[in-house]
């Protein structure tokens, strides 16, 4: 019984010691590689004034992260607005599925970054471009999972709808959506995770502001400890986003409320 209380705390701390030792060794091998101590003191500096704004290219870490998050949520919200209705349509209509499936299958494996130059040409503006790239990133898992959710509605429930003569509108809201919502949230959770990966790369290309830009900018400034700080902060925020999406998904999932 004792080990159950100790393990989740002690083991990660032990591993942290190993990581710091290895890291320190690498810092000795590679001249200029920031040591754990340097990164720690820099982290405190960076976090002590997170919202300063000295104009383009020199802003606090919270502003950089905030901009990235705003773009991610913007593109993500657009993807939900388009992807959920599209997924409902594809799931409910075999014709819509036949029409759209080939394009989804071809566009899905395209790296969202391949769209970036085209978006930059069309919008001629960095923010809209980043939002569009996140939109393209997020939409496929949402469409596919929504359609999957619709198709997993059991024939029995649809027969109930037929016997009660539910209108198409009532059928969507009373039968299909309750079944599909957990699937939709799975798609959203996947999308948000990928979007958070992609935004970093997109901002390295677009520049201006954002955590991706910040990391690339610090590389150009030879400020390597900030790169490591960026990596850690991206990881922590990504983890928080995923955990929040998980909580929201569980809240809307009828199966997770003691009703299996």
């Amino acid at each position: 019984m004792v080990s159950k209380y100790v393990n989740p705390v002690l083991l990660p701390l032990l591993l942290l010691g190993v990581i710091i030792a290895l890291w320190s060794y690498i810092a000795v091998l590679i001249p200029g590689f920031p040591t754990p101590g340097e990164v720690w003191s820099e982290l405190l500096v960076v976090l002590s004034d997170p919202i300063y704004d000295n104009g383009a290219g020199d802003q606090g870490i919270a502003l950089q992260l905030g901009n990235s998050l705003a773009r991610v949520f913007g593109g993500f919200a657009l993807a939900i607005a388009v992807g959920v209705p599209a997924g409902l349509l594809i799931g409910m209509s075999k014709n819509a599925y036949a029409a759209m499936n080939p394009y989804i299958q071809i566009l899905k494996p395209v790296s969202p970054l391949a769209w970036l130059p085209l978006a930059l040409f069309v919008f001629k503006e960095v923010n809209t471009t980043a939002i569009f790239v996140i939109f393209v990133t997020s939409i496929w898992p949402i469409i596919i999972n929504t359609a999957l959710g619709v198709r997993s509605v059991s024939e029995d429930y649809l027969n109930v709808a037929k016997v009660l003569q539910l209108s198409p509108f009532e059928r969507v809201f009373q039968i299909i959506l309750p079944v599909a919502v957990p699937f939709i949230f799975t798609g959203m959770r996947l999308s948000l995770g990928i979007a958070w990966l992609v935004i970093v790369a997109a901002e390295m290309l677009t520049g201006g502001v954002g955590i991706g830009f910040w990391i690339w900018d610090e590389y150009n400034n030879l400020n390597y400890s900030h790169i490591i700080i960026g990596i850690i902060l991206i990881g922590v925020i990504g983890y928080i986003l995923d955990a929040l999406m998980g909580l929201i998904a569980d809240f809307f999932d009828y199966r997770k409320r003691g009703r299996v």
């Binding site: 059991s154 027969n159 109930v160 003569q165 009373q174 309750p178 199966r255 009703r259 299996v260």
Partner: peptide
């Protein structure tokens, strides 16, 4: 609805 059906597997809506 004038011909109500009781299905073998009850088909209640679980939510």
């Amino acid at each position: 609805p004038e011909r109500a059906v009781v299905f073998q597997n009850h088909s209640l809506l679980p939510w």
